[in-house]
Simulated assay, not measured.
Amino acid sequence: MRNTELEKLDGLLGEWTTTVSDAWFLEPPGAEVPGKTDVALLGESFLVVTSEFGEGEDRSELSLVIGRSDANDAYVVLYQDDRGVCRQFAMTFGDGRWTMTREDPDFHQRFIADVEKDRIVGRWEASDDQGKTWRKDFDLTYERA
């Protein structure tokens, strides 16, 4: 039986072209990194998001698994990438806004995005002082393929 709260995420399903831009770590300033993202169902209660960015030696991959904690009435996201990084995020989704946040001892991190039918415009931010101040890491744009 399909989780009814996950049905609210059905608009994310499918293939997307993605672009990383305005990133402090990209050279030269203004550089953009194209990519692709696929969002698919895993069973009746999870979404799997797989993304690839760049090419050759600069190629990177990451995956998200989005699920629910029904008892806590909350979305939960598990993240992993090809650097061996594994993280857990709390997530909200609704009213045209998608957020993912984590408040871990190493640093705090958040994703904030405006969601339209065929476009998602977001940014990743980080805080090294437990959320008192934030710096933008990069913009992330999804366009339905």
Rank of each mutant, 00 (worst) to 15 (best):
R2M: 11
T4G: 02
E5S: 08
L6D: 04
L9S: 05
L13R: 06
E15Q: 10
E15W: 01
E15F: 09
T18M: 08
V20F: 03
V20S: 02
V20K: 05
S21Q: 04
D22N: 15
A23T: 08
W24H: 10
L26C: 02
L26Y: 10
P28F: 00
P28H: 03
P28W: 03
E32A: 08
P34L: 05
G35L: 10
D38Q: 12
A40Y: 02
A40M: 08
S45T: 14
F46S: 06
L47A: 06
V48C: 04
T50V: 12
G56V: 08
D58G: 15
D58V: 02
L62T: 02
S63T: 13
Y75I: 10
Y75E: 12
Y75A: 07
Y75T: 06
V76L: 15
V77C: 09
V77G: 04
V77F: 11
Q80Y: 09
Q80P: 01
G84F: 11
G84I: 12
C86P: 00
R87V: 02
Q88C: 10
F89H: 14
A90E: 15
M91E: 06
F93G: 05
G94M: 07
D95A: 15
G96T: 07
G96R: 12
G96Y: 12
R97S: 06
W98Q: 11
T99N: 05
T99R: 13
M100I: 02
T101N: 06
D104S: 13
P105Y: 07
D106M: 12
F107V: 05
H108D: 14
V115D: 07
V115Q: 03
D118V: 08
D118Q: 06
R119S: 14
I120H: 04
I120S: 01
G122I: 00
G122F: 02
W124C: 00
W124D: 00
E125F: 12
D128F: 08
D129G: 07
Q130H: 13
K132Q: 15
K132Y: 05
T133C: 07
T133Y: 07
R135S: 11
R135G: 09
R135L: 06
K136Q: 15
K136C: 10
D139Y: 00
D139M: 05
L140E: 01
L140A: 00
Y142Q: 00
E143W: 00
A145M: 07
A145K: 14
